[in-house]
Design a protein around this nucleic acid. Structure first.
Length: 822
DNA sequence: GCTCATGGGACAT
DNA sequence: TCCCATGAGC
């Protein structure tokens, strides 16, 4: 259940911020959160075995919302069960079956609403459902990855590597994994999220909880002691007790020893061993390294993990299989080829983003001329006027780059285009005989001046977004009854968006503000169940209006004020401008070319250029990049334990023998086998498929090992100046984005990671080989004064040393919370 | 004052 | 499934 009570305890340092504040950054997303909420919209269909992909729509809507605000999402899916989290699946299955039966009974009586309540409780997200979302992500060129085990660890790894700069989730575990910037409670309506930054930990002002003077290892120990997904707490120990005990006794081992000595609470037998295993899960869990395409530990352990620990943090798997899992071609649970439960769901290439086209095409001095509005866009084109040239989605516009769908081997893009164009023509012909849409002119009507395009050798008419967009509920156009004021407001917001998008999309399209060359963009129909994936521009999109930006229109400023009022604060919006200006190149580092998964059929060879984070400007006057510092602080307290070891740890197992709470289980890695051919007739086949889908849904997935999204309430926060996520030159550059990954790049990656380590924390010899995540030092949440703890000494590895009384450190003259190296 | 168990409501549309 | 409020027990 995550860390119970952690998020409420961090309330004082959480800030609700508008998504636009993170424009230009790549944010990781825990896909499970969205999928799980998405299945709420279609629980009945899922439970009854009907084919549906509404949950995909839900998630994709949020994906587009992020992109709308200039954020590049990086979707991370949960993978296979971690032995540490295997729970009582039997009970859950029984409960699900019960709810399913109840739901069916109620449905039979016509009580659909009541039935739904039970259906909701019997469905869960499965890897096969995740696969449907992956298909949609692939179609829109969104980065994604399926973690070998837990998405949490994978997200932490991606952030530590600089591939993402923050994480959208609901799971407080992310902070325990060492993530620096986590966004909780993303609200699509207000386009905001509550941001918690690790750098703010020392400023926590919560009853009973203070992390001032804590190291990250102590923070982790506090979380584990209070009860986490990998280890239940000692009965009677919660977050506050764990915090105060750790403050007093420094290490978990000493805390446990003290609890035992006091004798008031019963410490389960083997608790300390299990604590170490849990800690290993947070530190060394296996994740997928998209650069080297193999499994890797989140942070490399100092030595070899023993057999139990090795299984506990996720068994290794061969690189080929790991890759198949990572791209979604293999079921992360069974490790067999992924079964497509909705083969008819074939999301297609993204339609052109009209405002993007205008935005990109508009030059700076065009401002105000030919003001593009939602009405002007949808209005019939004037005869002879140049048409709006669709821009091919970026994934297709890369010179010599990938073509969506082509690599799948199932069809070629040209074939798709031909087919879609034929269908489109047929439909337009039919429409031209009937009523004409005011907003969606037919190609003949609206493209008098269009340039002919050539597809597969055949000259065709250029197509603009057409009637198919009307099909999806996300694309309901304004109608004549629309209130005029609303229309005007939309126009104003749109204007602001155009300016914004012209900035963000220039980078995406690799141009410098010049008009983008029109490129072929096939008009395709979406299969039933899939909403046209036009990004966040539709009438009923939750946030159509412009985000809060420094350059916004008066209308948006009004809205900003409104939001300020709602938030009950005076200063947030004024202060929370972009966390760092994009034009601050002083510490810009060379771009890295990291391999992430963008769709190219079976071969995930797409790359994205990711800039390593520029070092953050000194925070609170310190000369240290606190965020970067923390990224490497993953040293286990176990090290300290060893230092402190008195030899009596093993003697503490005196309690009555009980079932260890964390039994290590064998991890099965069955050999992948092809699906069995099906010989039945069509009806029977359909029925069986339907039943199979229902079974898959009912069987559930994630809760077999990792259900637990305990995200305590974090309310509106104390407002503060910006300082959360770093803005970085991420993801896309005008020079392109699909370069092969070479050894030089990997070397560069390592070199850069080394370079980010402050010189004083590097080993003196300089000969020690370092990997980006190698533990190199520890940090403390707090005083910057170079303290020389007496008696305890400083370890040769640069570990922070705390005096016997950990609380003493807080008595430094500077009460500013910072980190100090020893 | 802290922990823990429990029950009701929301989730999205 | 999660969040929140509430109340009992220590």
């Amino acid at each position: 259940m995550g860390i119970s009570g952690l998020l409420p305890a961090l309330k004082s340092i959480s800030t609700r911020r508008h998504l636009s504040e993170f424009a230009g950054q790549t944010l990781g997303v825990d896909a499970y959160v969205w999928l799980h909420r998405g299945i709420f919209t279609c629980a009945t269909q899922l439970a009854t075995g009907k084919e549906t992909t509404k949950y995909v729509d839900y998630a994709m809507h949020r994906v587009r919302l992020l992109r709308h605000h200039g954020i590049e999402p990086y979707i991370v899916f949960d993978g296979g069960p971690l032995p540490a989290k295997k729970g009582t699946e039997g009970d859950r299955q029984a409960r699900r079956a019960e709810h399913l039966a109840l739901g069916n009974a109620l449905a039979a009586q016509g009580k659909s609403t009541q039935a739904r309540e039970h259906y909701v409780k019997c469905v869960d997200v499965t890897p096969q459902m995740a696969k449907q979302l992956i298909k949609a992500l692939q179609a829109e060129g969104i980065s994604y990855i399926v973690a070998p085990y837990e998405a949490d660890a994978q997200l932490a790894y991606l952030e530590a590597q600089g591939i993402i700069s923050g994480i959208i989730t609901e799971d407080s575990d992310l902070l325990v994994f060492g993530c620096r910037n986590v966004l909780y409670k993303m609200d699509a309506v207000s386009a905001t999220a509550e941001c918690i930054s690790q750098a703010d930990f020392p400023r926590i002002t919560s009853d009973g909880i203070s992390l001032h003077g804590f190291s990250l290892a102590q923070f982790r120990a506090m979380a584990i002691l209070s009860g986490c997904d990998y280890l239940p707490s000692i009965p009677g120990i919660g977050l506050k007790t764990a915090c105060s005990l750790l403050r007093k006794w420094r290490t978990a081992e000493q805390v446990v020893r003290v609890i035992r000595m006091e004798g008031k609470k019963s410490v389960p037998r083997g608790y300390l061993d299990n604590f170490r295993l849990a800690e290993k899960c947070f530190l060394h869990q296996r994740v997928y390294d998209p650069v080297n395409e193999r499994l890797i530990h989140l942070t490399e352990p100092d030595g070899e993990l023993d057999e139990a620990a090795n299984a506990y943090v996720g068994p290794d798997m061969n690189p080929a299989l790991a890759k198949r899992v990572a791209v979604g071609d293999a079921d992360p649970i069974s490790l067999r080829p992924m079964v497509d439960i909705c083969p008819s769901f074939v999301p297609r290439v993204l339609k052109p983003l009209p405002f993007v086209v205008n935005g990109v095409g508009r030059k700076a001095n065009d401002k105000g001329k030919g003001k593009a509005t939602i009405l002007s866009f949808f209005a019939p084109a004037k005869p002879g006027a140049p048409s709006r040239a669709p821009v091919v989605p970026i994934i297709n516009s890369v010179p010599g780059g990938m073509v969506v769908g082509k690599a799948s081997g199932k069809r070629s893009l040209a074939e798709e285009v031909d087919r879609d164009i034929a269908a489109k023509r047929k439909r337009l012909d039919e429409e031209s005989r009937g009523a004409q849409s005011r907003f969606f002119p037919s190609s003949r009507q609206g493209n008098a001046g269009s340039r002919p395009l050539e597809v597969d050798g055949e000259e065709i008419e250029e197509l603009v977004a057409g009637p198919s967009r009307l099909r999806g509920k996300e694309n309901v156009p304004l109608d004549d009854e629309e209130d005029e004021e609303v229309v005007l407001e939309v126009e104003e917001d749109l204007e602001a968006d155009l300016q914004w998008d012209s900035l963000s999309l220039m980078a995406l399209s690799g141009c410098n503000g010049d008009v983008a060359e029109p490129q072929v963009e096939p008009e395709v129909e979406q299969e039933e169940g899939y909403i046209s994936p036009t990004p966040s521009r539709s009438r009923d999109t939750e946030d159509l209006s412009s985000p809060i930006r420094p350059t916004d229109t008066p209308r948006s400023q009004k809205r900003m004020k409104l939001e300020k009022d709602v938030a009950g604060t005076e200063s947030e919006v004024d202060l929370d401008v972009l966390s760092s200006p994009p034009d601050a190149p002083a510490r810009r580092v060379p771009l890295l070319n990291l391999n992430v998964f963008r769709y190219s059929g079976l071969q995930p060879e797409g790359n994205v250029l990711v800039a390593a984070s520029p070092e953050r400007e000194g925070l609170l006057g310190a000369d240290v990049d606190l965020l970067d510092s923390f990224g490497d602080e993953r040293t286990s307290d176990i090290d300290c334990f060893e230092d402190d070891k008195t030899g009596d740890d093993d003697d503490e197992e005196e309690e009555e023998e009980t079932e260890p709470p964390l039994a290590v289980e064998e991890s099965a890695t069955p050999t992948p086998s092809p699906p069995t051919p099906f010989d039945g007739d069509m009806e029977e086949r359909a029925a069986l498929e339907s039943a199979a889908r229902a079974e898959v849904v009912a069987a559930g997935w994630r809760d077999r090992w990792a259900l637990s999204k305990d995200a305590g309430r974090v309310g509106l926060s104390t407002m503060r100046p910006p300082g959360g996520l770093r803005r970085r030159e991420t993801t896309i550059t005008p020079t392109g984005r699909h370069f092969p990954i070479g050894r030089a790049i990997r070397q560069h990656l390592h070199a850069q990671a080394d370079a980010s380590v402050p010189a004083r924390s590097k080993p003196g010899s300089g000969k020690v080989k370092q990997t980006p995540l190698q533990s190199r030092r520890s940090l403390t949440f707090f005083d910057p004064m170079p303290m020389k703890p007496k008696g305890t000494g400083t370890s040769s590895r640069g570990r922070v040393s705390l005096p016997a009384d950990g609380g003493d450190l807080s008595r430094g003259p500077n009460r500013f919370a910072q980190f100090s190296y020893s």
